[in-house]
Write a protein that binds this DNA or RNA. Structure first.
Length: 976
DNA sequence: TCGGGGCCAGTTTTT
DNA sequence: CTGGCCCCGA
């Protein structure tokens, strides 16, 4: 299985379990006493080693699972750890059910559940945490609650009006509060908890060293410093207070560097008012949340930390004999401190890989691992300032490096290091030597060295990625390792497309669909921006009063051209089948029922539809939602881009698309790293807010409010304008993201860009190939399809006959074997050959024997001569009506009372759908003429999931237009 | 070769 | 609101 961690797959687990751990792994497994810092690079069997080490610890006589803390960062990881530990120690799953193998958040949650009752009182808040205190997990929900709080807060505090005037969006204050909480900066009733206030004031020494770094003249002194250059725009489009220094004073005159005194000038600002404002927002929000009986993720850690800090007896009773933290590079400052409070002895082991630290936006601090010793000592000193909370010795720190990689070829491992060293922008100075010193190189234990590392660029990037994947699949130049270690031909399932953004993945998915390339999205998706949700929204709107917006979407999805849609909307002559569907929907009582009917009509039964349905049902049961509410809910979801997890069907042979973040910890034989395009992102850290917090400079605001000529006015803050130019732009996490993406690959890596490759791609030692190959169209293209002449037998017509690949009734009902295309083509080829009069042989063992029999008997039973045109399927020209259409229809099942026209499709490409709709419509009208007394249906059967979808036939006028356009004739043949 | 002015394009990741 | 780019002048 490509999309699961190596250690998880049966084949590799076998390899690792049969083979003994390598010497480094064994060292870690055996070293259970003392302080350990483990550098465990990508694919080095980290989970394997940790679980063995855990088993080793709990198998000691006097150690029980409840004495051993094992922290992971996801619940999935915790579950996986437990699963794998069970196989290696004397404890079973039941013994480990309550063992502390969990995430920081769930650990804190448990702690508060049991002991957190009075935790808020340590801050001076007169409220309690109880069993009924909820955890708000959804960002949207919390933002709504915070908005409510801020409204009230601003009413209660007119003295802060000046600050509120500069806050454009209240959620930036929520972000600030969360960021402070992640660092352990909390407010108390009359100040800040412990030494929290120091953070808010910043650290001048740290700032000055950053300042000096960007203020160093370049090119050996001939060129002004980066900082001076950046300050060129000082004051531009700004409105400073009159007492702000002049640009010339800030930049210095006749010099290549900014005067040193500027550092002090910009750093020393009066922050008392700002601190008071942030304090009160933070403190009263805590009160509000507790009053509303909820906590967010950050507050769980906040109160757990306070409890462990304040209640010495509790801390000592909880303290673990052994503690291990996995993925330590993902930990935040408060999590590091929590670890110290939870570890009762120095039997502490942190495992991680700084090179894979890509969760800065979740407050992960890579310094926790890169500056482990400094931080350890600093945090212990802080925690012990007034009471000895951390009792163990912080020395010595043992380091262990896992260097054997079980995933990638050596060529990929070597190449991946470039990812950490390439500049991200033209003027990005990478300290190559310093980074190289830090990198612990990995060596592979894979047996083959069959690796392609390529880069392609094309103006049509989505198409070129699809084409490249088509090129790779089935191509022995891209062989991958089979379970038995030999090499085999790559399949779709071996390929993963990793992207930086979800948006690119969504768009690529659409392109893949158009070309019939099997592709599935894995991970968090902006649920309400999917076609499924949009279609549901459209039908809800049709049911509600906003009909045009709804109908337009529905008609477009059904393949109507823009002018057709316009016509339908103007005349309100909606297709009959759609109108009756609307009536049926209107009768349904529940919104969940409506959603289900809509999805089943469109054959949406995949993971995405499930999640939409589930989400709607959960909202619906939580509140009493009207249709109008649901419309607004979905609309809001679309605007906010709120995400939900979608999981691809694991068994499907399809390409995986995921974000690099979502792919962390996973591996794929072939990785396509797409969207390597130039495109800048807003500066990390500060965000776009007007009140920000950043490590060396503390709390600051970008704009300030003042009266000007008696009128209210907002001014820019000149100090902040200078400060932000002093802070270097961090590309390190971007580089690590690149590294993570490359190291997901087992055998091959393909980088892909559009017209404008980014600096990363240009700097990597790989040649960028212009790749203009068009994808193979798997679907029918109406401009290239051979025109097909069909006629239909005389009105009395045969019963039970189909024009092409006939299938028995039971076969037709059951075709869901996913081999529709190959099967259909084979039968078509046979039918065509037979119609031509070629010598054909038919054996009982042939695939499709039954159906070919049908074809033969049908053709034998036809009256008139068969006219065969080149490359056309079964072009029949009997005396009767002639109709020109393109393409083929798989089945026309003529029964005594009704006729079914069905086309089988293996995918859900929209091009194809519109195309088949035309063909089915032609058949529909012809047959209706010929058999007016029989009920006629036209539908598409998706063999991939066995769903049948009714088609609303096009009108005759529309068909005539289409046939005209396709045939290029002035007047198209009409259906009689 | 450097500094400075002007102009343009494009805006993420999620336990 | 920034980085990148172009152009111009010293």
């Amino acid at each position: 299985m490509p999309n699961s961690e190596r250690e998880d797959s049966p084949a590799s687990r076998r390899v690792e379990d049969v083979n003994d751990p390598n010497p480094q792994q064994q060292d870690l497994i055996d070293s259970t006493d003392g302080l350990y810092l483990v550098d465990a690079g990508a694919g080095t069997g980290k989970t394997f080693t940790i679980t063995r080490r855990y088993a080793n610890i709990v198998d000691e006589d006097d150690v029980a699972p409840e004495d051993v803390l094992l922290v992971t960062f996801t619940n999935n990881a915790a579950t996986e750890m437990k699963d794998r530990i069970v196989g290696h120690c004397e404890y079973g799953m039941r013994d480990l059910a309550d063992a502390p193998i969990q995430t920081f958040h769930s650990l804190c949650h448990d702690l508060l559940q049991e002991h957190g009752y009075a935790a808020p009182t340590h801050l001076g808040i007169d409220d309690r945490i109880t069993g009924s205190t909820r955890i708000v997990e959804d960002d949207l929900v919390e933002e709504a609650l915070f908005g409510e709080f801020i409204d009230r807060f601003s009413d209660d505090h007119p003295e802060y009006d000046d600050y509120f005037r500069i806050v454009s969006n209240p959620t930036e204050l929520l972000g600030l509060v969360s960021q402070l909480a992640s660092k352990g900066v909390f407010p108390t009733a009359d100040g800040w908890y412990r030494n929290g206030e120091r953070y808010l004031d910043g650290n001048f020494e740290a700032f000055k060293s950053l300042f000096d770094e960007v203020n160093e003249p370049q090119n050996g002194g001939s060129k002004q410093s980066q900082l001076r250059s950046k300050l060129n725009r000082y004051g531009k489009n700004k409105c400073y207070l009159p007492n702000a220094p002049e640009k010339a004073d800030i930049r210095g005159q006749g010099t290549k560097r900014v005067p040193d005194a500027v550092a002090r000038m910009v750093f020393d600002a009066d922050r008392e008012g700002l601190k008071a404002f942030v304090h009160d927002v933070f403190y009263e929000y805590l009160e509000f949340a507790l009053g509303r009986n909820y906590l967010n993720f950050g507050f769980l850690q906040l109160f757990a930390f306070i409890l462990l800090c304040e209640d010495h007896a509790l801390r000592e009773s909880i303290a673990f004999d052994y503690a291990m933290v996995d993925e330590f590079q993902d930990s935040s400052e408060i999590q590091f401190k929590l670890t110290l409070l939870l570890a009762g002895t120095n039997n502490l082991c942190v495992v991680g890989d700084w090179k894979q630290s890509i969760y800065g936006f979740q407050y992960a601090e890579v310094e926790n691992i890169t500056a482990f010793e400094d931080r350890l000592n600093r945090f212990v000193d802080e925690l012990n300032a007034d009471h000895e909370r951390v009792t163990f010795d912080t020395r010595p720190i043992h380091t262990i490096e896992l260097i054997e990689n079980y995933r990638s070829t050596q060529e990929i491992l070597d190449f991946s290091e470039h990812g950490l060293l390439v500049p991200a922008a033209n003027r990005d100075n990478v300290d190559v030597e310093a980074i190289q010193d830090r990198i612990v190189s990995l060596s592979t234990n894979t047996e083959h060295e069959n690796t392609q590392i390529e880069a392609i660029a094309s103006p049509e990037e989505h198409e070129s990625v699809v084409a490249k994947i088509q090129d790779i699949v089935g191509n022995d130049a891209y062989q991958v390792e089979a379970d038995d270690g030999s090499l085999r031909t790559p399949e779709y399932r071996d390929v993963a497309v990793l992207t930086r953004t979800r948006e690119f993945g969504r768009d690529l998915l659409q392109t893949a669909e158009e070309y019939g390339l099997p592709m599935a999205y894995e991970g968090g998706i902006e649920l309400f921006r999917t076609p499924q949700a949009k279609l549901l929204l459209a039908w809800l709107r049709i049911l509600e009063s906003d009909t045009d917006r709804g109908w337009a979407v529905v008609l477009e999805q059904a393949g109507y051209a823009l002018d057709e849609i316009k016509h339908v909307l103007e005349t309100e002559a909606y297709p009959e089948n759609m109108s009756s569907f609307r009536e049926k929907l209107a009768e349904l009582e529940t919104l969940g029922g409506v959603a289900e009917r809509v999805f089943s009509r469109y054959g949406y039964d995949g993971a995405t539809a499930d999640v939409v349905l589930h989400t709607i049902q959960s909202v619906h049961t939580a509140t009493t939602l009207t249709r109008g509410d649901l419309i607004r809910f979905i609309q809001r979801g679309i605007e906010a881009g709120s995400t939900h997890d979608v999981h691809a069907n694991a068994g499907a042979n399809s390409v995986t698309v995921q974000t690099i973040h979502a792919a962390k910890g996973l591996e794929h034989p072939i990785v396509v790293l797409a969207n390597m395009n130039s495109g800048r992102f807003p500066p990390s850290g500060g965000g776009s807010g007007t009140i920000t917090f950043q490590d060396p400079v503390g709390l600051r605001q970008r704009k300030r409010y003042a009266e000007a000529d008696g009128l209210p006015h907002v001014y820019d803050d000149w100090r902040t304008d200078v400060l932000r130019r002093c802070l270097p732009r961090e590309y390190d996490e971007e580089r690590r993201l690149l590294y993570v993406a490359i190291t997901r690959a087992e055998s091959h890596v393909i980088f892909s860009a559009g017209e404008d490759p980014n600096t990363f791609l240009e700097e990597l030692p790989v040649e960028i190939e212009a790749w203009d190959t068009e994808p193979d169209a798997d679907t029918v293209d109406d401009t290239e399809q051979t025109e097909l002449l069909i006629t239909v037998p005389t009105p009395e017509g045969p019963v039970g006959h189909s024009p092409h690949s006939l299938m028995r009734e039971d076969v037709f009902e059951d075709v869901d074997d996913g081999m529709g295309k190959a099967f259909g083509t084979d039968v078509h080829d046979f039918a065509e050959a037979y119609a031509r009069g070629d010598d054909v042989e038919l054996n009982r063992d042939d695939p499709g024997w039954d159906d070919k029999q049908h074809v033969m008997s049908f053709l034998d039973g036809l009256s008139g001569d068969l006219l065969v045109e080149e490359d056309a399927y079964l072009p029949l020209d009997v005396d009767g009506t002639r109709v020109m259409i393109s393409g083929i229809i798989d089945l026309v099942h003529v029964r005594a009372d009704r006729i079914e026209v069905v086309d089988y499709k293996t995918d859900r490409g929209r091009h194809a759908e519109a195309e088949y709709r035309k063909q089915l419509s032609v058949y529909y009208h012809v047959l209706r003429e010929l058999y007016p007394e029989r009920e006629i249906s036209a539908s598409i059967l998706y063999t991939v999931d066995g769903v049948r979808e009714e088609i609303d036939p096009l009108s005759r006028d529309a068909l005539t237009d289409i046939v005209k356009a396709v045939s290029g004739l002035e007047s198209a043949p009409t259906v009689q």
